[in-house]
């Protein structure tokens, strides 16, 4: 499988990264080079192999239903590029 400029633009859109035409042109061979290389994995026989879930045997632990956090609005908003009236602010979204 290889990518073309349209695919690169599509991926960039999914990843929300603006790309110039020049960048797209450069990315096509770069990504194809990498993808061509990782595609060698296809030759590995994985019949009956389960995808790895936990690299070291370990069990998911659950925590009790207790309120232990929150009420830290200042800390939450402190680094915000734009915060007003206790909210984060973003360019207006039209639905």
């Amino acid at each position: 499988m290889s990518v073309d400029t349209a695919t690169v633009r599509h991926i960039a859109k999914l990843a929300r990264i603006a790309v110039t035409d020049h960048e797209v042109e450069a990315l096509v061979p770069e990504l194809n080079n990498i993808l061509g290389w990782i595609e060698q994995l296809g030759e590995v026989d994985v019949t009956g192999v389960e995808p790895m879930t936990a690299v070291i045997p370990n069990q998911l632990r659950m925590r009790p239903d207790e309120i232990t956090d929150g009420n830290v609005r200042d800390a939450v908003l402190k680094n915000a590029p734009v915060a007003e009236h206790g909210f984060f602010a973003v360019p207006k979204v039209i639905e």
Partner: peptide, 9 residues
């Protein structure tokens, strides 16, 4: 109140 029931997570 907005953003009061928010942890860093």
């Amino acid at each position: 109140e907005p953003n009061t029931q928010v942890s860093l997570v």
